[in-house]
Write a protein that binds this DNA or RNA. Structure first.
Lengths: 104, 104
DNA sequence: TAAATATATTGACATTTATACATATGTGAA
DNA sequence: TTCACATATGTATAAATGTCAATATATTTA
């Protein structure tokens, strides 16, 4: 089977569940903004993101944890601070899609 | 400003609202499956999609209308049947992202 | 150990959303 | 107009989610 045919194979129900879960997680303005800011600024602390978004710290922390739980983000602790960063390889592509849309 | 810099401009709150609304709409297994099937098969009737997904007709009709309302799908009536089809230009790109993920 | 700072967790409430079912609307053929 | 079929809409209940305040945990410094 050629590569093009492979790419157009029908998605399994399992994959649909997984992918829709991803989209659902991005289907919230603040969560999408957090991902976008991490794409622009690289690893950032919870308070840094709270200031950039103007949201309360517990709210930001909660969403960052949920994004991490789904495999979209990672985190590392440095002293008192926790830096979050993108880990899922497709996120920059999705964000570029969104940026393209905003230019049209 | 270079094209690369344009592409990395920070998204407006308006755009974040709009884009997260799109992702939210795709954040449901059946809605994502409907979009995927329309990408694979081209324009398809409501009953056709109900059979392909195994879901009840009212459920499929409801979701198709919501996808259309957000500008992701279009429809045309031919006699008794209504054909739905993709209209948003970024959907095939997003679906290819998902298909790529399922191969890794 | 105590205090200060950064982050994570919990609980309560309102709102939204999913789901299933019944039914209404619209179309073409008899 | 009446019937049969395709689609759309409405309703009710259950489940999931957002939001925010209070509080707990963890780390560093005094």
């Amino acid at each position: 089977m050629s590569k093009a045919q492979e790419q157009k194979a029908r998605l399994s129900l399992e994959m649909l569940e997984f992918a829709s879960g991803m989209f659902k997680m991005l289907g919230h303005p603040l969560r999408l903004q957090l991902v976008e800011l991490l794409d622009l600024h690289g690893p950032t602390t919870v308070n840094g993101l709270a200031e950039l978004t103007g949201q309360a710290q517990p709210t930001v922390s909660l969403y960052l944890n949920r994004l991490k739980g789904l495999g979209l983000l990672g985190s590392r602790r440095e002293g008192k601070e926790t830096y979050y960063f993108l880990v899922h390889p497709k996120l920059p592509i999705l964000l570029d899609c969104v940026r393209d849309c905003s230019l049209e």
